[in-house]
Design a binder for these strands. Structure first.
Length: 515
RNA sequence: GGGCUUGUAGCUUAGUUCGGUAGAGCGACAGACUCUUAAUCUGUAGGUCAAGGGUUCAAAUCCCUUCAGGCCCGCCA
């Protein structure tokens, strides 16, 4: 099936106008327009302009958002990235031929350049009194309605460019996202961290517990995984002698999609030699509180019905204390059988599986505590079974020096005193491998080269990973991760699905059969 | 994987309860209008009611299947 202007839903009337413009010999898609002023600059420079036309002229450009045709005059709104401004176009100024040409061929959505002078209308609106209009790009797709904009969530995600054109608040979300990444980078660079890029295509995946995407390299004739975390490579850099490193990493996890999970997501991972998990909590707290303060001018921000308070220090409590305080269960005061009964009474699912106090600790934490941690809260001291890359706790038998940061019930950060004992690491990997063989699709693979790296010696090191998407959700008051990811993962639309399957086949990759 | 729910014109939507020729606003098109700003006024066109099947004299509406969303739960250690 071939694509045509009709099948693409290009607007007939606008295609006609393109023909008219081209027949008139007017270039429709010129290569360049010398814009002298942005709309924001114009607004600032002419903020005091009066009802008389200004002496100074402006040359600006942008997209037409509304057109109000009054016969011999036109009012229109022109917008660029910096803002919007009204245009006033008169037949007297352009001359009859020019004016009629513009009037009959200009559409909402077109991109034009204008030259003119500034004045203030009777009603007080700063306006460009236009004396020349240049077509820069003819839009052949009609924009959504000017007043209601584009509301259809599915369409907003699938055609993000339209969402960005018409929804100011959506543009603001992604502006914030860009600033978040930039501020994190600056925060770390100011403290002499070096930013590196490590492999996304990995022969062995690790650094987290998750199912990977797989792919295949034809030349090497080898299966590769898209990384689920950059952790094991960044630690190799610490072995190599870089003492403060970070990576702003896109990770890929082949798992379910919901309001808090996208198959590809962004994380900043940070490692610092001669630090431990407590230092990393402090670093995390520093980054996040500075982000909040820089973006909002205060430490308190509204999120849904809550006010989140980011003034440091954040609350910190051990997992045992968190469970004791919030679930009302003292793990150490009960036998596993008693704990099972308690879990059952509290209607926690899977209460039959755990065997040890530590396993019940995790069960109670996940079942009764996690989603109640609304204000920024560090939870530390995790059972060793769930933390194969974290150092054993210096005093607490059976635990690791690991923490997670929770905000609004979401895991935002995860860090620990990094395990640097190669023999211990080998034992932990072997434990993970046994779980994998037993069918745990998310258990980690044994990475022999990583253990070898540790064999050369890694200094005591603190590390932390921060989920950028979720952080942006909090900072922009959005309740779905899709709202803060420009192009979230979606199923192809029905019509295109068959073609896609066909193309995938042609690539020699069979889509998994259903069932 | 389970539950609930949505899909009607380019966009925003009414109509679905209780079956009876699919309605509006914006946008488009034609026309009027030289300080409007969701401009206004007059007129015109535009619909496979997500797709397919069924029930019925008759289906946007009821039933079934499928597709694509959304919310919640499970899974995500």
């Amino acid at each position: 099936m071939s694509l045509t202007p009709e099948s693409l839903n290009f607007d007939e009337a606008r295609l006609d106008k393109i023909r008219t413009i081209q027949e008139a010999g007017v270039p429709l898609y010129p290569a360049k327009f010398e814009r002298k002023d942005t709309i924001e600059e114009i607004r600032q420079r002419f903020h005091a302009v009066g009802h008389e036309k200004s002496e100074d002229g402006v040359i600006t450009a942008g997209r037409i958002f509304t057109v109000r045709d009054h016969g011999k005059t036109i009012f229109a709104d022109l917008g660029d990235e910096s803002g919007r401004i009204q245009l006033y176009i008169r037949k007297n100024d352009l001359g009859e031929e020019q004016f009629d040409f513009v009037n009959s061929n200009l559409d909402r959505g077109d991109i034009i350049g204008v030259t003119g002078h500034l004045f203030r209308t009777k009603l007080g609106e700063i306006t460009i009194w236009v004396d020349q209009v240049t077509f820069l790009c003819k839009s052949v797709c009609a924009l959504p309605e000017k007043f209601h904009g584009l509301k259809d969530i599915e369409k907003r995600y699938r055609q993000r460019y339209v969402d960005l054109i018409v929804n100011d608040d959506s543009r603001e979300v992604f502006r914030t996202r860009s600033r978040v990444i930039s501020l994190i980078r600056r925060y770390l660079e100011d403290r002499d961290f070096l930013e590196f890029e490590t492999p996304i295509l990995q022969p062995i995946y690790g650094g987290a517990n998750a199912r990977p995407f797989t792919t295949y390299h034809n030349f090497l004739e080898q299966k590769f995984f898209l990384r689920i975390a950059p952790e094991l490579y960044l630690k190799r850099l610490v072995v190599g002698g870089f003492e403060k490193v970070f990576e702003i990493a896109r990770n890929f996890r082949n798992e379910d999609i919901d309001t808090r999970h996208n198959p590809e997501f962004s994380m900043v991972e940070i490692y610092e030699a001669y630090k431990d998990f407590r230092d990393m909590m402090q670093l995390t707290e520093g980054i996040i509180s500075v982000l909040v303060y820089t973006l909002h001018g205060k430490y308190d921000i509204a999120y849904g019905d809550e006010t989140l308070r980011f003034e440091p220090p954040f609350r910190k409590l051990s997992m045992e204390d968190a469970v004791r305080e919030i679930a009302g269960v003292d793990i150490h005061a009960h036998t596993p059988d008693e704990l099972r009964e308690l879990a059952k009474n509290n209607r926690i699912e899977d209460y039959e599986k755990p065997q040890t106090q530590r396993e019940f600790l995790v069960l109670f934490f996940e079942g009764m505590v996690e989603n109640k941690l609304i204000q920024p809260t560090f939870v530390y001291d995790f059972p060793i079974e769930n933390s194969p890359l974290a150092k054993k706790h210096r005093v607490k038998e059976g635990f690791t020096e690991r923490f997670e940061l929770f905000i609004n019930g979401m895991e935002i950060a995860n860090g620990f005193s990094e395990l640097n004992d190669p023999l211990d690491q080998l034992a932990r990997f072997e434990d993970q491998d046994a779980k994998r063989r037993a069918g745990d699709m998310e258990a980690q693979m044994i990475d022999a080269d990583f253990i070898t790296a540790l064999g050369f010696g890694m200094p005591p090191t603190g590390g932390v990973g921060l989920g950028i998407d979720r952080l942006v959700m909090l900072l922009t008051n959005r309740d779905s991760i899709k709202e803060v990811i420009l192009f979230p993962q979606m199923k192809p639309e029905a019509v295109k699905s068959e073609e896609l399957v066909e193309e995938v086949r042609n690539e020699g990759i069979e889509p998994p059969s259903k069932g």
